[in-house]
Amino acid sequence: MYQFSYAEVAQDTAADARDRERQAFDHSLALLERAEKNGPRSRDAIEAVYITRSLWAILVEDLGSADNGLPDELRGELISIGLWIMSEAELIRAGKSENFRGIIEVTRMIRDGLN
């Protein structure tokens, strides 16, 4: 029978959470890249904007929580990035921007920074 210490379980849980975050970013990135290819008025763009905004809304809410374990400065920076991405996505939805590339590049950097 296996016995795990609390630290091992907590570490696995954190690793699992990072893996889920990475998967969510990968999904968002795939949708954004397809939307960039098919244009801002495509069905792909609608889906990419919706998923990307939803993902960042969840992340910003979590980052704003006092229970979030990241340092305050990093949390603030990530919240600012998230708000920018949501704003850019809204501009795309409204037909005022086609900046998929900017969102893709920033999202990729955030995803690649997950450990």
Rank of each mutant, 00 (worst) to 15 (best):
M1S: 09
M1C: 06
Y6V: 13
Y6W: 11
E8V: 00
V9K: 03
V9I: 12
V9Q: 05
A10C: 06
Q11T: 10
Q11F: 02
D12P: 03
D12L: 11
A14R: 15
A15D: 15
D16C: 12
A17R: 11
R18M: 13
E21N: 14
R22K: 14
Q23D: 11
A24Q: 10
F25N: 01
S28W: 02
S28P: 04
L29M: 08
E33T: 07
R34Q: 15
R34C: 05
R34W: 09
A35S: 03
A35N: 04
A35K: 00
K37P: 05
N38D: 12
P40C: 08
R43Y: 13
I46K: 10
V49H: 02
I51Q: 13
T52G: 04
L55H: 09
W56G: 03
L59N: 04
V60I: 15
V60N: 09
D62Q: 15
D62L: 12
D62N: 15
L63G: 02
G64E: 11
A66S: 14
A66T: 13
D67E: 14
N68L: 01
L70Y: 01
L70T: 01
P71E: 09
P71Y: 07
E73I: 06
L74V: 06
L74W: 02
R75E: 00
R75I: 00
E77W: 05
L78D: 02
I79W: 01
I79M: 07
S80G: 10
G82N: 04
G82Q: 04
L83M: 15
W84A: 07
M86C: 09
S87C: 10
E88Y: 02
E90N: 13
E90S: 10
I92A: 00
G95M: 02
G95W: 03
K96M: 14
N99C: 06
R101I: 03
G102N: 07
I103V: 11
I103W: 00
E105F: 03
E105C: 05
E105K: 04
E105Q: 08
E105P: 00
R108P: 03
M109S: 05
M109P: 01
R111I: 08
L114H: 00
